[in-house]
Amino acid sequence: MNAATGMRRVSVHRLGEVLLASIQQELTDSIAVALRQDLTEMAAAGTRGVIIDISQVEIVDSFLARVLAEIAAATRILAGRTVVCGMRPPVAITMVEMGLGLPGLHTARSLEDALALVEAGEVGR
């Protein structure tokens, strides 16, 4: 699918027991779906959590919101938690106006906060 469009997948890095996906490009629906597959497969090999850095993402529509929620659901089953970090203000405002949330996901301001959140294990509300 990506070979056909010539667009890169989102690269996923392993930092100890944490998977980090930093989205640095325009996301098509198929790249988002490929990211979900990659993260789910890599999480199955053992992980404490997944961090998705969306600080460079300019829009989150209902499709991407659903893919993110699916990633969270899959990694939760595999004993990890998913943290989305760095959402831009216009993205947050737009999602709220649409009535979109990120069910099942944790959020953090920065990558550092996200790592702390995964390490913390227990999440307060």
Binding site: E26, I59, S62, P90
Partner: peptide, 27 residues
Amino acid sequence: RQAVREAAVAAGFSLVEQTKVVTAASE
């Protein structure tokens, strides 16, 4: 998304307004 973003910038939309219309266009 890219074309709608460009049109919104040209029409003087703020960043939040651009993001809203681009997101609507994506849907």
